[in-house]
């Protein structure tokens, strides 16, 4: 957490899962063919298959390329859970989740002074009677120049509530949207040789990735340092994947372990 800095702290408010729960998830299970091996009959049985995922015999798993992070070359195919990466598009749910997230992001520190807080005299401005003019009391009343603000903003919490099941549904839809729009790049592992932004930008230029969100299965010092100063790049750990950032950035780079984690966490 400390490594990923403020971005991650801000995001963690929307994390649907806690770290304890994350540890319980087994992320090491590989469902795809190991790199450099010819896919055998046995390997094809792994990952979501027709029999284990649905009683519908017409069920076929979704498929995507498993790419190399640096070269963007396809290495293998990867099967995806249809529940998580093939959910029907519900723009209304995405809207609700995004509004809920942005509500919670509001600082709510706006403040004005009412008539009791504006500094100044509390003396009665003119005698009550005998002046031949209207009655005047306080000089700090809202209708007077320099007076207080009536019903002005005061610091408050803007956060709203959203059922957890809707939050999780939102994540499924956001991931499915990215997949359907060809904006989801699944990579084997995210490895950077150095912490220099130059190196990361080189990879970015090579692949034509404009604005990207990188979802890594664990905190990555090099990745964080390399992207910290890039405006169009954001990094998150898999437990803190959120709808707002999935939609904010054009392309989502996600590693295989994170895919398996999200499939397990978000299954219905």
């Amino acid at each position: 957490m400390a490594q990923l800095g403020l971005k991650a702290i801000a995001a963690s408010r929307f994390s649907t899962f806690t770290s304890t729960r994350a540890e319980a998830i087994e992320t090491t299970t590989s469902h795809t063919t190991p790199v450099g091996q010819v896919p055998s009959q046995q390997n094809e049985q792994e990952g979501p298959t027709a029999t284990q995922n649905s009683d519908n015999s017409f069920y076929t798993p979704l498929q995507a390329w498993l790419r190399d992070f640096r070269t963007n070359e396809p290495k293998d195919m990867i099967n995806l859970k249809r529940q998580v990466f093939g959910a029907p598009l519900r723009k209304d749910i995405l809207h609700r989740v995004v509004v809920w997230q942005r509500d919670a992001e509001r600082q709510g520190t706006h403040s004005t002074k009412g008539r009791s807080e504006v500094s100044g005299t509390t003396r009665k401005a003119a005698p009550q009677k005998g002046r031949g003019a209207a009655r005047v009391g306080s000089l700090r009343a809202p209708q007077r120049r320099g007076g207080g603000i009536a019903f002005g903003p005061k610091p408050r919490d803007h956060s709203s509530e959203l059922p957890r099941k809707v939050q999780e549904m939102g994540l499924r839809i956001a991931l499915s949207t990215k997949y359907a729009q060809d904006q989801l790049v699944i990579v084997d592992d995210i490895v950077l040789d150095s912490h220099k932004a130059r190196e990361f930008e080189k990879i970015q230029r090579q692949h034509g990735w404009d604005s990207i969100l990188v979802v890594a299965h664990q905190e990555n010092e090099n990745l964080w340092r390399a992207t910290n100063n890039l405006q169009q790049v954001d990094v998150t750990v898999m437990q803190e994947t959120d709808v707002l950032r999935l939609l904010k950035y054009q392309t989502v780079i996600i590693d295989r372990k994170s895919v398996r984690y999200l499939e397990k966490k978000l299954k219905i």
């Binding site: 979704l62 093939g86 959910a87 029907p88 598009l89 723009k91 209304d92 995405l94 809207h95 609700r96 995004v98 499915s176 949207t177 997949y179 359907a180 729009q181 904006q183 707002l244 939609l247 904010k248 054009q250």
Partner: peptide
């Protein structure tokens, strides 16, 4: 699977 709509869905075209 028709999980896509014409034009890309992003933050600019969400609505309840």
């Amino acid at each position: 699977y028709s999980t896509v709509v014409p034009g890309k869905v992003d933050l600019s075209n969400l609505s309840d």
